[in-house]
């Protein structure tokens, strides 16, 4: 059984309202020098599947390639 971690984020240039809100809220709390805050999704998968199959899962269902990028981190044996 292999374990994967998947990070799904909006593509460059797509407005991320929750991220923009967090950015403003952090500035309101007095934190300076915040360049940008992006909020995405984190998915854990434990499966008897290879990396190519997990990549396919992301393309078909877990992420929408029209608006999102994804990054898969293979964590080895679960």
């Amino acid at each position: 059984m292999a374990r994967y971690e998947v990070y799904v984020t909006y593509k460059q240039g797509i407005f991320d309202p929750p991220g923009a809100t967090a950015e403003r809220a952090l500035a309101n709390l007095g934190y300076e020098g915040i360049e940008s805050v992006k909020i995405g999704k984190y998915i854990q998968i434990e499966a008897d599947a290879d990396l190519a199959t997990v990549h396919e899962m992301c393309e078909r269902l877990l992420a929408n390639p029209v608006i999102e990028d994804f990054r898969i981190v293979a964590e080895g044996e679960a």
Binding site: I14, F15, P17, P18, T21, N64, V66, I67
Partner: peptide, 17 residues
């Protein structure tokens, strides 16, 4: 319909949250 690729684009969260 957009998820099914019958129509192009996507529907994102409302900009005003």
């Amino acid at each position: 319909l957009t998820e099914a690729h019958l129509l192009p684009g996507a529907l994102l969260r409302n900009s005003g949250l």
